[in-house]
Amino acid sequence: MSDLSDLESTTLTHRLVLLGVAELSGRDAVPAHAGEVVSTCVDRVDEVEGDILGRVSEADVARALNQLEDAGLVERADVGDTSAVGKGRPAYVLPMGTDALCDTLADDARLAALVERVRTVYEQES
């Protein structure tokens, strides 16, 4: 289980990526391949209020995933993927619960709409 106090030092892009993995988790699409996380983040960036300038790149998300993994805020999953689609791409899961993540990030007004979306997706699947 990750120490949620580490979230205090995350950037807005890191938080977007964490919520992207959380949304995929709510859809039972985890472990989530990096490409799926990129797609989710690109689709949701307009819901973030703040200093992300219009879009987030694949490189931004990949860099954030690596940094979040180093901080213990996401974990790389061994998926044993044999399909051509996901082959060779890392896949990620949250070591903390989606509710705990959303509760911690709910205080960030820039992410209010996205946190609410993740909670809604998560509740629909539960």
Rank of each mutant, 00 (worst) to 15 (best):
S2D: 07
L4G: 04
S5M: 10
E8W: 14
E8I: 14
S9L: 13
T10V: 07
T11E: 05
L12P: 00
H14R: 02
V21A: 00
V21H: 01
E23P: 01
E23S: 13
E23L: 13
S25Y: 03
V30Q: 00
A32R: 01
H33R: 12
H33A: 09
V38E: 01
T40L: 11
C41D: 01
V42G: 02
D43S: 07
D43M: 02
D46F: 06
E47Q: 12
D51A: 07
G54H: 07
R55C: 00
R55L: 05
R55A: 08
R55M: 03
E58N: 05
E58I: 06
A59D: 15
D60L: 04
D60A: 06
R63D: 14
A64F: 01
A64N: 10
L65A: 08
E69V: 14
A71F: 07
A71P: 10
A71N: 12
G72Y: 12
G72R: 01
L73C: 05
V74L: 00
A77G: 04
D78C: 04
D78T: 10
G80F: 10
G80Q: 11
D81C: 12
T82V: 15
T82L: 12
A84M: 06
A84R: 02
K87E: 13
P90M: 09
P90C: 09
Y92C: 02
L94H: 03
L94N: 00
P95V: 02
G97Q: 13
G97D: 14
A100V: 07
L101F: 02
D103N: 12
D103G: 10
T104M: 03
L105S: 03
A106K: 13
A106L: 11
D108T: 11
L111N: 04
E116H: 13
E116R: 13
V118M: 08
V118A: 06
V118S: 04
R119S: 05
V121G: 04
E123I: 10
S126N: 11
